[in-house]
């Protein structure tokens, strides 16, 4: 399934001083995939759009920190 969260596994040395983080993540936001925005894309209702920061569903990509519970329906 498509996700805007990507992972990679860095080299782990046997002599690293700290416990290794085996999987590193990074974000590839939706703006990396769309090119020039095509017409007639699905929109959020206006009230929701003002809260979310975008009118366009395709560009909505919320980010939550480690202290926050993931909210249902939002991707991480």
């Amino acid at each position: 399934m498509f996700t805007t969260r990507k992972q990679y596994e860095p080299y782990i040395s046997p002599f690293d001083p700290c416990p290794p983080i085996r999987v590193k993540t990074y974000v590839t936001a939706p703006n990396q995939y769309v090119g020039f925005q095509p017409p007639n894309l699905p929109q959020f209702p206006l009230h929701e759009a003002l809260k979310k920061g975008t009118l366009w569903k395709i560009f909505y990509d919320p980010y939550y920190g480690p202290y926050e519970m993931k909210r249902k329906g939002d991707q991480q």
Partner: peptide
């Protein structure tokens, strides 16, 4: 900053700002 912050209300505002950056880059 969101990773460092445990304040859910503050993060809500930061999330909005981050979304706007995605739109600006687009």
């Amino acid at each position: 900053i969101i990773n460092m912050s445990d304040d859910p209300d503050l993060n809500d505002g930061l999330r909005f700002l981050r979304e706007r950056e995605i739109i600006h880059a687009q």
